[in-house]
Design a protein around this nucleic acid. Structure first.
Length: 423
RNA sequence: GGAGAGAUGGCAGAGUGGUUGAAUGCACCGGUCUUGAAAACCGGCAUAGGGUUAAACCUAUCGGGGGUUCGAAUCCCCCUCUCUCCGCCA
């Protein structure tokens, strides 16, 4: 959500920046509406003032035992006008909000222009791609091991679900534990267990609603299933006024995520790359406005460290203006190398939202000696998507006989087992 | 799920229709006093919006929303949350 005062004072800049990300705003309409809103508000407040004055006098007269009939009739006429003025003000306010709610965040000055992912900028490529002769894709490997079952999953739940069994299920759990341990023990994140069913308000706060309802699942009890733990973790600070000393606040959680994949029909239909349900270790930082640019680098480094320790080759992309998400001002994607696909695929997306989510959430902080409050900055990133990391391990650590070598850092999580084989 | 009680400023806690944005205490900030500190005393101390060069000033806010009324923290309705008892339950 944008600051209406910023728009009012910098309409051209606002418009230009939104155009950069392919969003054509109607700044003139917004400014006009804002102007209308403020005069309606002044009108309403003037009437309220008159009413309050007269009511006060009535009170005084009645207290003194006098007759206030004259004032009572005087205020009746005023009342009708006031009700009308309040209605007008409310409508304009709602109209303006409806527009503002749908406007995405402004792009960070440091990101490239572009319409789609083709314009994303390569920052660096890290690690060595393994030399594998005719590498197999993860689903062939998993099915051959008898530990990955799409058919049975489809019978009970439909397409885009999977069952992992035995060592693959354990590998999944090992990955989640490894990631959480790393982020908590070495990077200072606080681990959290949080709701995966949330209210509409929570999703509004992080920016998924009202615009992207089609991508989400909703229960009959009017709960929504989270598409990412960014939602509950960022909502930790919703409506709060934090002390400056509480910042930075770094949270992590390993949760299931649910996405309808409404716009992805026909995309990645084979395998477990794109599922309706997947698990992810999420990182969220709530920081002082001066720190958010640095925090994005830090957070990305935390996610990268997972890939480094797993010995997976990856590259870092800065998303272009046309590819960043609704709430983001700047995003780094981490793309892991998948030999079976012969391509890099996203395993993490780290974004700074600056104060965009904080405004929607009303998440503020207070500094000692400073009057008033300021909005915090929020960031979120995957550290990492567990299912996709599992895919990367299968494809990168596959052996000619179809077995999978376990990366060293995961072995302690698997009782020292070094290899997954068909039994 | 059923029955009941409650939600007031950073905290505690008054306030059941009239100048109450809200007593009082604590905490906090400034001052007097003191070599310094404590105590005592004096003063200050919410948020958001409008307005202004800046002020003054105005409006709203006592969990959230709606209603009654000339006037609502106070009355009515809905929602959320907390607590107690009962039921169910991992």
């Amino acid at each position: 959500m944008h600051d209406i005062r910023y728009i009012r004072e910098n309409p051209d800049e606002f418009d230009t920046l939104l155009r950069r990300r392919g969003f054509v705003s109607s700044v003139d309409d917004i400014i006009a509406l804002d102007q209308k809103r403020r005069s309606a508000q002044t009108e309403m407040q003037n009437l309220q003032q008159s009413r309050n004055d007269i009511s006060q006098k009535i009170g005084e007269i009645k207290k003194a035992g006098g007759d206030a009939e004259k004032l009572m009739t005087e205020v009746a006429d005023l009342k009708a006008k006031l009700i009308e003025a309040e209605k007008i003000e409310k409508n304009i306010d709602a109209e303006l909000n409806a527009i503002l709610e749908l406007i995405p965040n402004l792009p960070h000055p440091g990101i490239p222009d572009g319409h789609d992912e083709a314009a994303n900028r390569l920052e660096r490529e890290v690690g060595k791609k393994p030399l594998i002769e005719s590498p197999k894709e993860h689903f062939d490997l998993g099915e051959a091991l008898g530990l990955m079952d799409f058919e049975t999953a489809a019978q009970m739940a439909g397409s885009r679900f999977v069952i992992l069994k035995g060592m693959l299920a354990r590998l999944d759990r090992a990955l989640g534990n490894f990631m959480l341990d790393l982020h908590c023990a070495e990077f200072g994140y606080i681990e959290a267990v949080a709701p995966v069913l949330v209210r509409e308000q929570a999703l509004f706060g992080t920016g998924q609603l009202p615009k992207f309802a089609d991508d989400l699942y909703k229960t009959e009890a009017d709960h929504w299933l989270i598409p990412t733990a960014e939602v509950p973790l960022t909502n930790f600070v919703a409506g709060k006024v934090l002390n400056a000393s509480d910042l930075p606040l770094r949270l992590t959680a390993w949760t299931p995520c649910f996405r309808s994949e409404a716009g992805a029909a026909g995309k990645d239909t084979r395998g477990m790359l794109r599922q309706h349900q997947f698990s992810k270790v999420e990182l969220v930082s709530v920081v002082h406005p001066d720190e958010s640019d640095m925090e994005l680098e830090r957070m990305t480094a935390c996610a990268e460290e997972v890939l480094k320790r797993l010995g997976l080759a990856y590259r870092v992309m800065t998303l272009c203006t046309g590819d960043i998400g609704f709430s983001a001002t700047k995003t780094y994607d981490l793309e892991v190398w998948l030999p079976g696909q012969n391509s890099f695929r996203e395993v993490s997306s780290c974004s700074s939202c600056r104060c965009f989510q904080a405004r929607r959430l009303n998440a503020r902080f207070k500094s000692p000696g400073q009057k008033g409050t300021s909005f915090v900055h929020t960031l979120n990133g995957s550290g990492l998507a567990v299912g996709r990391t599992l895919i990367a391990i299968l494809e990168n650590y596959q052996n000619p006989d179809g077995s999978i070598t376990i990366p060293g850092v995961l072995q302690p999580y698997l009782n020292g087992i070094t290899k997954i084989e068909k039994d």
